[in-house]
């Protein structure tokens, strides 16, 4: 029943491909080297956080250019709870997720309350992330600009509860998180709230006329998006074991987070996943290639991402997924889904 809902509108071929891909990913750590595992973990991470950003922009139409804020707050929050109170990351999430959701909603409320819309709201999100970055540079209890380091305890095997262990552990955890986010978004877009988000995105005035309380619905989108992103931040902290305000709160990170969904397809559920699958290997591959050639060119990744973005905007402004999915016969084209559904209901 649930899987039927989750795969609604996906063709048998799409289901087969998804299952095969997932199976391969589950088995892969048996054969892959640690480099490949680390790249895939990174892909899962960007797929996950892209998914979170997509809730706000893709579904509810609210542009955030400061999602690094929630990565940083989530990461620092969980790291502090771990180092000072000995609380594991999963327990830490129970604290940092609601906190980040509230921070997001507070920013959202400020913006919406004072009529800061569109681009100006996006600027507000940047300002909040930048302000927090500077603030963290000066919080000495959390390492300040010198960074915060989580103790690395080796040789005790994989500890899922404390999220300490081998690359394989992080690989599987991040894979599961990305899958959960995918499922969550898939479900939420078919709920009443999900439809309200889409209406808000498409036309706020018309949405309000149909009785949708815009402020509440927007805040719920920001809250969910920020809370989900915080989980990505917690994972980041425990995976890399170091946090620098310059890195986690960086504007560049906020941008990297939203590139995946844009390339894959804003407002689609699989777009962020596809985007991460394309961009991360592209960036890493370029770095590898340059390294092999013995060339040091800082910013290559950014240039490649930039080029990719230009190509997408020119040729597939809706992203690659909506086009690919229909072209490759992975999903039933939108109109026909509903027809089939109706046929079943009768």
């Amino acid at each position: 029943m649930l899987t039927q809902d989750l795969f609604e509108g996906v063709t048998p071929r799409g289901k087969m491909l998804f299952t095969a891909g997932l199976g391969a990913l589950l088995l892969l750590p048996e054969v892959a080297d640690s480099y490949l595992i680390s790249i895939l973990t990174l892909i899962f991470w960007f797929a996950y956080v892209g998914q979170a950003w997509n809730v706000m922009m893709g579904f509810a139409g609210q542009l955030s250019l400061g999602h690094a804020l929630y990565v940083g707050l989530g990461g620092y929050g969980a790291a502090a709870l771990y180092m000072h109170l000995g609380l594991g990351p999963w327990v830490g999430m129970l604290v940092v997720v609601p906190v980040c959701a509230l921070v997001g909603m507070a920013i959202g409320w400020l913006g919406f309350r004072f009529g800061v819309r569109g681009v100006h709201f996006a600027l507000l999100t940047i300002a909040c992330a930048e302000f927090t970055r500077v603030a963290f540079d000066h919080i000495t209890a959390l390492g300040g600009s010198g960074g915060l380091f989580l103790p690395v305890v080796g040789g005790r095997g994989d500890d899922l509860l404390m999220l300490r262990g081998s690359p394989q552990l992080y690989y599987y955890v991040m894979l599961v998180l990305a899958l959960l986010a995918l499922a969550l978004c898939r479900i939420v877009t078919r709920t009443r709230l999900g439809y309200f988000w889409l209406a808000l995105r498409e036309n706020p005035d018309a949405a309000a006329a149909l009785g949708i309380p815009l402020l509440r619905v927007k805040l719920l989108a920001v809250g969910l998006s920020a809370g989900m992103t915080a989980v990505g931040g917690v994972f980041y902290a425990f995976y890399y074991n170091n946090l620098f305000p310059d890195q986690v709160f960086a504007m560049g990170r906020s941008i990297e987070i939203l590139l995946g969904p844009i390339v894959g397809g804003i407002g689609t559920v699989f777009g962020p996943v596809l985007g991460a699958m394309i961009l991360t290997p592209l960036g890493e591959g370029a770095s590898l290639l340059l390294e092999a050639l013995g060339i040091t060119l800082p910013g290559t990744k950014q240039v490649i991402y930039g080029l990719m973005l230009v190509l997408i905007i020119c040729f597939r402004p809706a992203g690659i997924w909506p086009w690919l999915a229909v072209k490759a016969g992975l999903v039933v084209p939108p109109g026909e889904t509903d027809l089939r559904e109706k046929g079943e209901a009768e």
Binding site: R192, Y195, F196, L198, A199, E202, A207
Partner: peptide, 27 residues
Amino acid sequence: FQIVKPFAGLSVLENVLVGALHRERRV
């Protein structure tokens, strides 16, 4: 609205569904 405001990216049925969800909570 005199100047119509459709939810252009949604199907015609979904447009009306959004309105119907105002008083009917079940999709």
